[in-house]
């Protein structure tokens, strides 16, 4: 009972604190503090509920146990991280986004291709591409190459559609201005259209960053060497070692957020001129 009372007290206390903080003028501190307090409240309530209701750690391990496993098994987690994120997801991400970018410039050059490929690309982007995973695992073998291939296929179309859309985001006035400067196709592309497309390109890169991790992990469910985050998750679930599974999820969460955050920072540095970035301090 004491644990349950604690959970309730923490919930009320945390919400009250957030209520007070959020009704004061917005500053940098409150903007950061409020979500952090909310997150901490959730973690404490989780711990208290697991202990108070005596939920078996096989079903839902408490956060303290997950943290202990995380600290204990860092070498396994690191090995899985290198296999899945660095070799699988990152290679595929760079290849897929790079190919989509080059393709987008070619598509943009020829109006026929643009009118034909864009509807198809939009259609494919809505399909459950992840289903390609077993086929690609069959083609490229169990190691990281097949995971990279899955990631390439997954990130290609969102990136292509976004880049093509971005490249058409200049208006006739701006292009005419470039023509009065006697700028050729490549000059116009480099100095006007690519910078104007950057917000869209970054949007595509952000979507692709989450897709890349998902693709690399899920592809491992269809066969992998005896390391990798997806492999560890599926085998540990079989052994009911849920604390290790949660530790892998923590790794995935950190990697995913860092990946996304890194791209967002880069976007802020490169598109500082865009209205969506200017309004914020």
């Amino acid at each position: 009972m004491a644990w349950l009372a604690l959970a309730l007290a923490v919930w009320i206390g945390g919400w009250w604190l957030n209520h007070v903080l959020s009704h004061r003028p917005k500053t940098r501190v409150t903007r950061l503090a409020v979500p952090v307090i909310f997150g901490l409240t959730i973690v404490i309530i989780w711990e208290a509920l697991v202990r108070g209701l005596e939920i078996s750690p096989v079903l839902l391990p408490p956060p303290t146990q997950i943290a202990a496993t995380f600290a204990d098994k860092t070498h396994i987690l690191w090995q899985d991280f290198v296999q899945t994120v660095i070799k699988g997801a990152l290679t595929g991400y760079v290849l897929g986004c790079g190919a989509a970018f080059v393709m987008a410039i070619a598509v943009d050059r020829f109006d026929f291709l643009k009118r034909g490929l864009l509807p198809v690309g939009n259609f494919v982007a809505a399909l459950p591409i992840i289903g390609m995973a077993p086929i690609l695992v069959m083609w490229f073998g169990f190691d990281w190459q097949s995971k990279a291939a899955v990631v390439v296929v997954m990130v290609f179309f969102p990136m292509l559609v976004n880049t093509v859309e971005g490249l058409s985001d200049t208006d006739a006035m701006q292009r005419d201005l470039m023509r009065t400067y006697a700028a050729g196709y490549w000059k116009t592309l480099l100095k006007l259209r690519l910078p104007a497309a950057l917000p869209f390109i970054f949007n595509g890169l952000k979507i692709a960053s989450t897709l890349a991790l998902i693709g690399a992990i899920v592809a491992e469910f269809f066969g992998s060497p005896i390391k990798g985050m997806g492999f560890r998750i599926s085998t540990s679930v079989g052994q009911l070692a849920l604390d290790l599974v949660w530790a892998e999820i923590v790794v995935a969460a950190i990697v995913g957020s860092a990946f996304y955050g890194g791209i967002a920072l880069l976007e802020k540095a490169l598109t500082f001129w865009h209205p969506s970035q200017r309004g914020r301090s």
Binding site: N18, L21, V34, T210, G256
Partner: peptide
């Protein structure tokens, strides 16, 4: 209060590869 505390977590929840 919900805007300031929940919204950032809604966005963060999607950077986690939940499918895993």
């Amino acid at each position: 209060t919900m805007d300031m505390s929940v919204m950032p977590w809604v966005i963060a929840s999607q950077t986690i590869p939940i499918l895993a």
